[in-house]
């Protein structure tokens, strides 16, 4: 990537429309709190999307995929047409994925375009046109503004000595075609071996372990409706992380995060598989590395208790 391109992204992403999504107002509130706190600490501006709605998550597409495209397009329409923003940042993998998918469909599928246009007109707002905004993940946001060098300069409590397995889940990289900027040469994110989270945590001093299940599935879509399958998938992820030497699994998705926490307990209860690996959002880890207190990054809102752990590692 040329210096010029990096520079423009650096400027562009410093003030973005923020789309937290439903999970971040509920079970994933710790991710919301830590993302905002980290942004503030790093001098990045977040403007929450006015009157945003659910993107459709993993469920609405099963009723009708085009309905999901509409829901996601409404969020982007508000950011573009009402707020006049160029960039929407979504920390939740599900939201990020759905906005990206809507962008792809509206660019390439005439039928999706027609449905979205019809529903937008009837709902009384401007139809979102492909290309009006760029959707990015919280990982892109930190990486392209502050970057590894910037983080290194700002580290207050190094993550040195903490062994981390970086877990990206499904929706951040699959399917490849909805992420045209990934797999596009040096410096870009990889869909088969993602590394942005590894890069950021490494810059904050962490020791990333070689974790083979970075993009494995936690069964998040059926975390409640087919709990036994999800428990088996999660148990595998947790045990593999521990076998790779990790003390912490760093997450970047509220569904994965609560899935891992919930089924860590359930695996112990139903399968007798006990694991001690901590499950912490990457924004919580980076926040603490930048000098924020555990409560300021919502560590108390996680289900799994990692207070003693972070204290022992000198982060509190």
């Amino acid at each position: 990537m040329s210096d010029k391109k990096t520079e423009s992204k650096n400027e562009k992403y410093r003030e973005v429309a923020y789309y937290p999504g439903c999970a971040l107002e509920g079970s994933g509130h710790a991710y919301n709190r830590s993302t905002k706190a980290l942004g503030k600490k790093l001098g990045l501006k977040l403007k929450e999307v006015d009157n945003w709605n659910c993107c459709g998550a993993m469920e609405v597409k099963n009723i009708d995929p085009k309905l999901q495209t509409y829901l996601s397009s409404r969020v982007m329409s508000i950011a573009a047409n009402k707020m006049k923003m160029d960039v929407v940042m979504a920390p939740c993998n599900g939201c990020y994925h759905n906005l990206k998918k809507a962008e792809y469909d509206l660019k390439n599928d005439e039928k999706s375009k027609q449905v979205v246009d019809r529903l937008s007109k009837k709902a009384g707002h401007e139809t979102y046109q492909a290309g009006q905004v760029e959707t990015i993940h919280a990982l892109d946001w930190v990486k392209d503004t502050i970057g590894e060098e910037g983080l290194k300069e700002r580290v207050k409590n190094s993550l040195a000595g903490i062994k981390i397995a970086n877990y990206y889940g499904c929706m951040y990289t699959r399917p490849r075609h909805i992420f045209p900027e990934k797999d596009s040469g040096p410096g870009s994110e990889s869909t088969s071996r993602p590394h942005f989270m590894d890069d950021l945590l490494d810059a904050a001093g962490a020791e990333n372990v070689d974790f083979p299940l970075k993009t494995a599935c936690c069964g998040g879509a059926h975390t409640l409706s087919d709990s036994d399958t999800s428990t088996r998938l999660v148990a595998n992820i947790l045990q593999t992380a521990e076998a790779a030497g990790a003390e912490v699994i760093a997450t970047e998705c509220p569904t994965c995060h609560s899935g891992l926490e919930m089924h860590q307990i359930r695996a112990n209860r139903t399968l007798g598989i006990k694991t001690n690996v901590k499950i912490i959002y990457f924004t919580q880890l980076l926040g603490m590395a930048m000098g924020l207190k555990p409560k300021e990054v919502g560590l108390h809102e996680n289900v799994s208790d990692s207070f003693d752990f972070v204290k022992q590692k000198g982060l509190a």
């Binding site: 439903c22 509920g26 709605n53 469920e59 409706s225």
Partner: peptide, 30 residues
């Protein structure tokens, strides 16, 4: 209807009604 479809229905119904989801409510109804 599978548990998955029941979940999808409850979830989508709430999104369509209110525009947003509250996970506790979805869980209880499910």
């Amino acid at each position: 209807k599978s548990h998955s479809t029941i979940f999808d229905d409850i979830f989508s119904e709430q999104v369509i009604e209110t525009g947003k989801i509250e996970d506790g409510r979805v869980l209880k109804r499910f």
